[in-house]
């Protein structure tokens, strides 16, 4: 590695951990990613009409409540049995291999939609969720969050992570079951009902 990433860190700097390389900064995805990152079938983790397929959709909004037309969402999830999938083919769907990864850009009104399978819980006592990464013009680094499935209310109530979130903010992490069976999950980047975004250990943000 170049000497830009030194192994030593001054202990008085709380964001740097001694013995660990300093990560390269993230930057905004900018406005011009549409021709580069979204790909055909990115939002279809399974073809519509597949048994068990569900539409996972919602709107990404800013602090004024306006939809973002230039946000990119990625989802990453277990299969219905709760197992992480480790298979190639997310960028060229073959119509039957479930890879667990999806990517979609919001439309003009900020709306997005995936078609996927509902993940199972990854461990006993954990509520099942879909991991999400949010990128957008105006957002200087990516944000992580989770979309929890709404149906198993006992699992939601018992989940250790959800219990760590203040009760009034917990609903921002749980999808709503729509009358048509789809899952609705809105992402609010800023404001009173701002979505809970995550910081993992070993990360500044």
């Amino acid at each position: 590695m170049s000497d830009q990433h030194t192994r030593t860190a001054t202990p008085t700097r709380p964001y740097a951990v001694p013995g660990v390389l300093v990560p390269t900064p993230g930057q905004t995805i900018g406005p011009f990613y549409h021709y580069a990152l979204p790909y055909e079938g990115g939002e279809l983790l399974v073809p519509p009409g597949t048994p068990g397929a569900v539409q996972l959709h919602g709107t990404v909004t800013d602090g004024a409540g306006a939809g973002l037309q230039d946000a990119l969402l990625e989802i990453w999830q277990c299969d219905p049995a709760g197992r992480p999938v480790q298979r190639q083919g997310s960028m060229h769907r073959d119509g039957h291999t479930f890879t667990g990864f999806g990517r979609v850009s919001t439309r003009r009104d900020g709306h997005y939609s995936f078609t996927t399978l509902e993940p199972g819980p990854s461990a006993p006592g954990r509520a099942p969720f879909v991991a999400v990464t949010v990128f957008a013009r105006g957002l200087l680094n990516r944000l992580f969050t989770r979309i929890y499935l709404p149906d198993d209310t006992d699992a939601l109530a018992a989940d250790p992570f959800l219990r760590s979130v203040p009760e009034d903010r917990r609903p921002t992490l749980v999808a709503a079951r729509e009358p048509d069976g789809s899952l609705r999950f809105d992402i609010r980047l800023q404001g009173d009902d701002e979505t809970v975004f995550l910081r993992f250990p070993r990360q500044e943000l």
Binding site: M91, F101, A123, G138, L139, L189, Q190, L198
Partner: peptide
């Protein structure tokens, strides 16, 4: 201005699917 969170990011220990990454390869 309108696109940054104003509340603290919430600590989360990665679990399940977050502990692995999507696999890409020659097919992709």
């Amino acid at each position: 201005l309108l696109r940054h969170p104003t509340k603290d990011l919430h600590h989360a220990d990665p679990e399940g699917v977050e502990l692995v990454a999507p696999v890409f390869g020659e097919r992709d």
